[in-house]
Write a protein that binds this DNA or RNA. Structure first.
Lengths: 235, 235
DNA sequence: CGACATGTTGAACCTCATCAACCGACGTGG
DNA sequence: CCACGTCGGTTGATGAGGTTCAACATGTCG
């Protein structure tokens, strides 16, 4: 009861996988859960290590990365509040997960959680649909990495964040905080810090965005940004 | 019975999603299935159209592609015999599916198939795990598209095909038929036909592969190819 | 055989990576 | 309190890798 109470106060209760569960199911899930905080930069899971952890992201931003043998890095996924972290039905992790900002997680031990998946079809269904969405997102990103120019990549990324974060997504004047530093942006976009920086100032110069400090982003025109991103406005 | 008989003769019976199903379940699936052939180049499903079709690939190679507004193309997935085609739990397609070679499909109408998914948890589980594998593969490819050189990309692709096709995957001397033409290779690797062609001749010149005709590929050293691909041999 | 698609090779160009210098913010220790 | 180092970010100069454009070779199918 006390535990369940925590869930009812949870910031991401409705949006996370928990949203698909009844009170009784939620209680079971809650029994195995615990909160944990990670400082920006900390490693949460490591590639080629056994899967030990599943988690809901309560707050913050997590980057999933892969590295080549000689150390080149690519971000293959970003997770925000209410997203789910962890590779179900896999033995070893295929990527690193690191806190891109300070992060708060609601963690489930892997063995207990996999038993719950087997018990509650709704939970499994929810995870399935999220995986399908992740796959769609990954494929969208493949188009960006394979075929888009540096300018288009940066614009696409800002558009992505705007759609996820801005209070009024369709409006001009939307603003948000950039959760990544330039180096992480570069690793996500398949570019270098220098080009990212240059493209950002270029977007500022053309009057499509305004940059406040280094993290504050204000969009003057969603349509022009979508145009610069090389994609249709509705996408 | 006659129908079930067809399944028992099916080339991909064990490897496709059908492998997870009992005879009774298979019978139900079979009732709604029909075979269909597509010539190389034909479009099987179109982006932004409603989902109407799920299918097992009996033979041939299918490319999943995305296009920018101005026509640049990127292959975001390749499907081979025994793979599954179709976006479950989605309203509209997010990509095009086209026959890269002549293709034979075992097609299920979407509505009937989704009812079967709801009925047979094993089937759903199987599709879930395939989706997770697809996601892993997509993310591997993001590393390639974002961070690898042209030489590494081509080598990685040959390695991928070798692992999937060659009779004795671990052996040197493995050989297979390239299922894609140069233009498709380019669209998969985020390059142009010209660079693909140059890198292929370069691999031939360094004695890592032999090219017979335009489609026949023979690998002299799996280890050297993995090295050229910029990844550890076991990957 | 001829026509068209597919593949190769060459030369010029351009985008982006690389290398380097610089700036501001922040934190730490003398 | 200021000197110092570190980290994140910006800007400039240079060059390499890959695209683009073009010509040519090869293959395939009627």
């Amino acid at each position: 009861m006390d535990h369940l109470h925590r869930c009812q106060l949870c910031a991401v209760r409705k949006l996370a996988v928990c949203g698909a569960m009844s009170d009784e199911q939620l209680n079971r899930l809650n029994e195995i859960a615990h909160y944990k905080k990670y400082a920006a930069g900390q490693t949460i899971i490591s590639s080629d290590q056994p899967v030990t952890l599943f988690a809901n992201i309560v707050s913050g931003t997590i980057k999933l990365t892969k590295v080549t043998v000689d150390g080149r890095e690519q971000i293959v996924g970003l997770l925000f509040a209410s997203d789910f972290l962890g590779r179900t039905f896999g033995r070893t992790n295929r990527y690193f997960a690191m806190a891109a900002t300070d992060v708060e997680l609601c963690i489930f031990p892997s063995d207990a959680f996999e038993r719950l998946i087997a018990t509650f079809p709704d939970l499994k269904q929810c995870l399935f649909e999220r995986t399908l969405d992740d796959l769609d997102a990954a494929r969208d990103w493949m188009l960006l990495l394979g075929r888009k120019s540096a300018a288009e990549r940066v614009a696409s990324f800002l558009l992505l964040l705007a759609c996820r974060f801005a209070r009024s997504p369709q409006q001009a004047g939307a603003q948000f905080d950039m959760p990544l530093k330039r180096a992480d942006m570069a690793d996500y976009l398949g570019l270098t810090v220098e080009t990212v920086s240059r493209q950002m100032t270029r977007l500022k110069a053309t009057g499509i965005i305004e940059i406040k400090g280094t993290r504050g982003i204000k969009l003057f025109s969603m349509a022009r940004l979508a145009d610069a991103a090389g994609q249709s406005p509705g996408d």
